[in-house]
């Protein structure tokens, strides 16, 4: 009894396969390269591993950005121009704030 139970367990245990191989097997089974949701999510995982900070709206359907990516865009000249229809108000500054709070925070820490 003990031996047969072990055999059953061994039969069900399979070594973990890398992600890319999983996709290949799925495609081979279907006989054609159909983009099932599982395959698409695998593509997204692979893309994320190569481009962790990029926005993947072309894959996920939603436009998402990481914090670092957004902060990177804060330094471009278009981001420092004063908006055309900004009302006159005590909270509105005449000139753009030069440094982000984040950057000044990092500088003060270091």
């Amino acid at each position: 009894m003990e031996v047969s139970r072990r055999r059953v367990l061994q039969r069900h245990l399979e070594p973990a396969r890398p992600l890319r191989r999983c996709i290949q097997v799925d495609i081979e089974k279907e006989g054609k390269t159909q983009r099932t949701p599982e395959i698409i999510s695998s593509y997204i995982l692979i893309a994320l591993s190569f481009f962790p900070s990029c926005h993947l709206h072309f894959l996920t359907g939603r436009i998402s950005y990481t914090r670092d990516f957004l902060i990177g865009l804060a330094c471009c000249p278009e981001a420092k121009r004063k908006p055309e229809f900004l009302p006159e108000h005590p909270i509105v500054l005449p000139k753009a704030v030069n440094s982000l709070f984040y950057l000044s925070y990092v500088n003060s820490d270091s």
């Binding site: 804060a74 471009c76 420092k80 004063k82 900004l86 500054l93 000139k95 753009a96």
Partner: peptide, 26 residues
Amino acid sequence: IKQIGSFASVEQFWRFYSHMIRPGDL
């Protein structure tokens, strides 16, 4: 309540944000 402005892109957001005082200074 006062409407300051609307934006549709990251660059437009930074334009508003960089021209507004920080909450800590309110």
